[in-house]
Design a protein around this nucleic acid. Structure first.
Length: 975
DNA sequence: ACCGCCGGGTGCC
DNA sequence: ACCGCCGGGTGCC
């Protein structure tokens, strides 16, 4: 990385064609190079401060980067500096070079930095009284094992690392979160956040970010779908973010200067605006429509996108020319896109040939593409500094200080004006190029940019086309090009003349490796759909996305962060939110403080996010009204009577269970034998559904000889409980278990929950039974994919049950009433789903099945099949309660049968919400089957109690929970 | 004068 | 840099 940018900067003067060299990362500017370099560095989490020392930044007068009192500076190794391979460059927050670390110190630091023994951070606490050098306080941070080596090495070169923050007198009294934060690891400044608080804060980070509550904007006339109030608000907000001169977060105007309150950076020039942001509305609130409206409504300076109208054309015109074919219909385009790629290999030649001939006809230097223009803001500050510094005659006067802003630009200019350029170019051409660059650089609004690029996952590509078609007025002609498939038109001229270009993350990153036309275009706007996809900054996809050139950038995402601050960096980097697009500053100012539990850091993060994000959930309200109204939902509970035989069997099992559990209660060992208790309860619950659900869990614990054997059997029981699909609860988070693991003592928890328990204590104990637990002894579930399959239920000797009959009665009645109604049949027990297949087949129901064992690929296929409105599409879906995440969209169904109660009422709710959500056109009817006089009835009572508890905002302690658990169990068996 | 002293040029890495 | 260093100019006072 370092070598790349340096090489770029220096070699540009002799090699103009660098852009065409695919092997080089086309770093555009110095700040990009730094960003790239910084993002390669490992995360600085948990770094220890080894010590600090005072160094000197020299050579200030050669660079225009300014640093103010208290400001942080960047330190970048320059291994290819021709004067000193140990050179360490100093930059300011904006990535402008400030100077170098004095060579003696740089020599010592180089070893530490190159071997990654420590991260070195610099803060300039005091100003300087001259314009040649200034003091800098360097902090060395790293992991404990490197401390000694670093301290010794520095000492051997005569640099003593001062543990007390050598010379950082100016830092005293600084609040955490300001530049002093680097040194505030010393603790005691504030009470750090607990892990739980932190988690909550994250979960809520994106909540309630309703901005501009009053502003509403109507979409341009070409959008035919009327926007809902919240969509008009979003449009208003998005237009404002694109058009208005709002300072980025933490920047404020102080007199004539712009000041960043987090980094203490101030500048005379206005910081680059972030034109865009994150639209993080819940799924279904119409992010796509709002974005389409934005594209149509806000072209340049708030004017709508100029569109052609035709009297006759009756559908959206898509210029999806992929070689031989002319324009074709959206459906065809979609089909093509989706089949795409492999099939059409041969005809791609047509396109590429066309493009290359076009290119070869014109010498490269002559093609002045907007994309090749390097944007440089020209500001008065530079000219003043120029006068002050009295440029020496060594510098060609034409270049001026402007050059020094940006090595790349400098190189480009010096190349253009140099008489000794190896490449033969006439001065005319050079001047032309130069003048174009200059003229563009003067205006902030580049009018040459026209097209919006939408990058999305393949799965929603067709949705975009559909939505454009659906929401645009019929006679409006918008040029949309689907950049996908092997025949895609790679001509930059063609692409940049479109109104909209849609592509996928995959295509973008595939192209990125070689000459990518998408990266050579100056886009008006880039929209990342499902933007959370790019949260891993090391992924090729993410890199490809970061290098796109655009004036406005948007991220659409229903789930902007999954669970960590780290995920956010990528989003901010894409938005080019200065200075956090450089990983180093992000780490220093936000990530590290937040991870270490610093409240100010979290506050900063929250502010940051608030400024650039709009998020509403489907529960959000506008003027006291829901954003979108859903069809009605009615929940019925249908009591099921067991047949006399079933009742007999059930009572027998219940009697046995009560005896066993009664013994545990008497011994006070309920929690120690929890797995057995759960197994007993589960057996009863299974009886309520169907007798054949009961597996071979009869291993008698009483016959276990050794404690080890007992433990083994308990663990085994727990495995079976989980394998049956039962939705168990984690006693740490009190929620349904995610990523279950079984402890040595046969209790089950979410892996992250128990991991936290273990890491937070020296000698970790099981929250339920206080046995000692170790990470190494946790049993993963499922250890191997051995979920039940159809074989285990013998269909030859299939028998019915009261609950099966109850369901079938309902289904048949439903079919008689309206054949088109689709049903979800939900059970926790996958084996029950298998049992249900037989009567469904017998009665001629076409159905699909979705459970946890279905692969992701198959899953989409099944859902598509079910969601289809075709006459022969399946009418019933057998769904395991835990299958699929919250995102699952099953709006084709409007009838839900919950076959068995879950411990956690929220899980049931979630399941119902899969069809009772946006897009649901019918009223939703839910039926819960509950067996009368059974453990199920008692479960419902406990569910209610739990709901109350949640509503009262749980103030229960762990012991409360445990006793209530024992009480629950007693209540379940009416003991 | 193979020195000292003066003062201009110069100065990161 | 209101420094240090270099190297040319200069040379009693």
């Amino acid at each position: 990385m370092f070598s790349n940018w340096w090489k770029f900067g220096r070699d540009r003067s002799t090699d103009v064609d660098l852009f065409s060299d695919g092997s080089e990362s086309p770093a555009e500017t110095l700040s990009q190079a730094i960003r790239a370099a910084a993002s390669q560095e490992p995360d600085a989490d948990g770094s220890l401060l080894f010590g600090q020392l005072r160094g000197t930044v020299v050579g200030l007068r050669y660079y225009t980067g300014v640093v103010n009192r208290g400001e942080m500076v960047g330190l970048v190794r320059e291994p290819h500096n021709p004067y000193d391979k140990n050179a360490v460059m100093v930059t300011n927050v904006l990535g402008r070079q400030v100077g170098h670390i004095r060579k003696e110190l740089a020599a010592a630091m180089a070893h530490v930095m190159d071997n990654n023994l420590a991260k070195v951070e610099g803060v300039v606490y005091s100003g300087t009284n001259n314009s040649f050098s200034m003091p800098v306080t360097l902090s060395f941070l790293g992991s404990e094992e490197n401390r000694d080596a670093v301290v010794k090495h520095m000492a051997s070169r005569g640099f003593k690392l001062d543990a007390d923050g050598g010379g950082a007198a100016g830092a005293k009294g600084r609040s955490f979160g300001s530049p002093g934060s680097s040194f505030s690891f010393k603790k005691g400044v504030t009470i750090p956040l607990t892990a739980e608080e932190l988690k909550n804060a994250f979960d809520n980070l994106f909540e309630g970010l309703m901005q501009s509550k009053d502003g509403e904007k109507e979409a341009a006339e070409s959008v035919v779908t009327p926007l809902l109030p919240h969509q008009k608000q979003a449009l208003s907000w998005m237009c404002a973010r694109e058009n208005e001169d709002v300072l980025p977060p933490f920047w404020e105007k102080r007199g004539d200067l712009y000041y960043n309150s987090l980094t203490c950076f101030s500048a005379t020039e206005i910081p680059e605006r972030v034109r865009g942001g994150i639209l993080a509305d819940d799924m279904g609130l119409g992010k796509t429509l709002t974005t389409i409206a934005l594209i149509l409504t806000n072209f340049h300076q708030g004017k709508p996108l100029p569109v052609e109208r035709c009297v006759s054309c009756h559908h959206l015109t898509l210029f999806c020319r992929t070689g031989k074919d002319g324009p074709f219909s959206p459906t065809k385009a979609k089909k093509k896109a989706l089949e795409g790629f492999k099939l059409q290999g041969s005809s791609s030649a047509v396109i590429s040939a066309g493009v290359s001939s076009h290119c070869s006809a014109i010498p490269k230097e002559d093609v002045i593409d907007a994309a090749d223009v390097v944007q440089v803001e020209d500001e008065p500050q530079k000219s003043t500094s120029k006068e002050k510094h009295k440029p020496t005659k060594r510098k060609p006067s034409k270049e001026g200080p402007l050059l020094l802003e940006d090595l790349d630009f400098a190189a480009a200019l010096s190349c253009a004006t140099s008489a000794t350029t190896p490449k033969k170019k006439t001065t005319e051409k050079s001047k032309l190029k130069q003048s174009v660059e200059m003229s563009v650089s003067e205006s902030t609004d580049d009018l040459s940019a026209k097209a919006t690029l939408i990058v999305c996952p393949l799965s929603v590509l067709s949705n975009w086309l559909d939505q454009f078609k659906q929401h645009l007025r019929f006679n409006v002609k918008v040029n949309i090009y689907l950049y996908y498939g092997s025949e895609r038109n790679r001509s930059k001229t063609f692409l940049s003349s479109q109104d909209v270009v849609i592509t996928t993350y995959n295509v973008l990153s595939t192209d990125f490796g070689s000459k990518s036309p998408l990266h050579g275009i100056n886009w008006l706007r880039v929209v990342l759909d499902e933007g959370h996809i790019i949260r891993n900054p090391n992924a090729q996809m993410s890199k490809a996305v970061l290098e796109l050139k655009a004036q406005r950038r948007w991220i659409l995402s229903g789930t902007p962060i999954q669970n960590s601050v780290k995920d956010l960096w990528m989003l901010l980097a894409f938005l080019r939110l200065k200075p956090f697009d450089v990983r180093e500053w992000w780490n220093r100012v936000i990530q590290r403080p937040v991870i270490q539990g610093d409240r100010a850091g979290l506050q900063n993060l929250q502010n940051l996010v608030k400024c650039i994000t709009l998020r509403r959930t489907k529960n959000s309200e506008v003027n006291g009204r829901r954003l979108v109204s859903l069809p009605k939902k009615t929940v019925y509970v249908e009591q099921v009577e067991l047949s006399p035989e079933e009742r007999m069997e059930y009572n027998l099992a219940r009697f046995e269970g009560r005896r066993t559990i009664g013994r545990y209660v008497a011994e006070g060992s309920v929690l120690r034998n929890y797995a057995d208790v759960l197994a007993i309860l589960m057996r009863l619950r299974q009886y309520c559904c169907h007798p054949d659900l009961i597996g071979e869990i009869t291993a008698d614990l009483a016959t276990a000889d050794t404690p080890a054997e007992l433990r083994q059997r308990l663990v085994e029981k727990m495995r079976l409980v989980l394998a049956s699909g039962s939705d168990e609860e984690c006693s740490v988070c009190l929620d349904s278990i995610r990523m279950p693991v079984i402890t040595h003592c046969a209790h089950v928890y979410c892996r992250p929950c128990i991991a936290q328990v273990i890491s937070s204590e020296q000698k970790a104990r099981c929250p339920l039974c206080r046995s000692e637990i170790k990470t190494s002894e946790l049993v993963e579930f499922p250890p191997e994919e051995e979920m039940e399959d159809e074989k285990s239920v013998n269909s030859d000797r299939w028998r019915t049950s009261s609950k099966v009959q109850a369901l079938m009665r309902n289904l048949l009645r439903q079919r008689a009433e309206d054949v088109n109604i689709k049903c979800l049949v939900v059970s926790q027990f996958t084996r029950f789903l298998t049992v249900l297949q037989t009567p469904l087949r017998d009665h001629g129901f076409s159905f699909v099945r979705l459970d946890g064992t279905v692969s992701q690929k198959k899953r989409t296929q099944i859902i598509q099949e079910f969601q289809s409105s075709a006459a022969d599409s399946p009418k019933v879906m057998l769904l395991s309660l835990k299958a699929g995440g919250v995102g699952l969209n099953l709006t084709a169904a409007s009838r839900v049968f919950l076959m068995d109660p879950a411990w956690n009422p929220a899980t049931e709710e979630q399941c119902i919400d899969r069809c009772h959500r946006l897009g649901q056109k019918r009223n939703v009817v839910v039926t819960k089957f509950i067996v009368k006089d059974s453990v199920e009835e008692n479960m419902v009572k406990i569910q209610k109690k739990k709901q109350d508890l949640v509503e009262k905002a749980f103030g229960s302690t762990n012991t409360d929970r445990k006793t209530s658990r024992v009480n629950d169990i007693k209540a379940l068996l009416e003991m």
